[in-house]
Design a protein around this nucleic acid. Structure first.
Lengths: 119, 119
DNA sequence: CGTTCATTTGAACGTTTGTTCAAGTGAGAG
DNA sequence: CTCTCACTTGAACAAACGTTCAAATGAACG
């Protein structure tokens, strides 16, 4: 909270920067979205679902981790609206909530390939 | 690590899901990228920089937080290659590392507006 | 009803993360 | 060289996170 000795170095730059700060609710939305994607288990779940819907049991087998751990992460993805689910008897099938999700994943792959090149 | 009683419910679905799992190095890259974006302070820094380069002092004034806290977060963004910096005497100016970053931010805003609509 | 089985949920525990505070760089000015 | 000032860095500590384990739903089936 201190700032610098001379208080502010470039007042107009500060003003311009402030003008671009997103309102709190938008900010919270973005943070939640990226946080949901910022975990390797959840990213692996999303990628596995690119092939089509999967039940929790199969997802656990696919990733080689416990059903409970997968279920916990699915609830995070569900809260972030990244996956949907449908029930068929005892089995619950999860899938990507819409095409936008796979588009995002694809665009990230491109970005990373790009910054790898610039390394 | 247990799986279900019947072991696997849909073996071919598991196989298809596994085929889409990214290799560990790609996965780590994605995770790091999204993790860097999954924090409100860092998102605010990136948005402030949309207007143009800013020094640490001004950034701290813009966000209303300590120079030290901002500097720590800048080092995270630097490690994720999301920002660049140039030195001019005692002052260090930070800017978005490339146009791709602002493109990503813009595409996220669109996605969030979309899923807001579907709410 | 009671059992089985896929899934969810809650508490626990170690790990990671973000901020603060104090000390440390490093570049210009006197 | 010494001082100042913008910035970085490390240790510390609380808050948030991901996994595990055990207990709890909830739907089918006898």
């Amino acid at each position: 909270m201190n700032g610098c000795s001379t208080r502010v170095i470039h007042p107009q730059a500060v003003e311009a920067g402030r003008a671009n700060l997103p309102p709190p609710d938008q900010l919270a939305g973005m943070e939640g979205f990226f946080k949901a994607l910022g975990d390797s288990t959840r990213l692996r779940i999303l990628h596995a679902l690119l092939a089509g819907e999967l039940c929790v049991c199969d997802l656990s087998e696919t990733l080689g981790m416990s059903v409970s751990a997968v279920s916990h992460q699915l609830s995070v993805l569900k809260a972030a609206r990244l996956v949907s689910h449908r029930r068929d008897g005892k089995i619950i099938y999860y899938s990507l909530s819409d095409d936008h999700v796979s588009a995002v994943l694809e665009s990230m792959r491109v970005h990373l390939a790009e910054s790898e090149r610039t390394a």
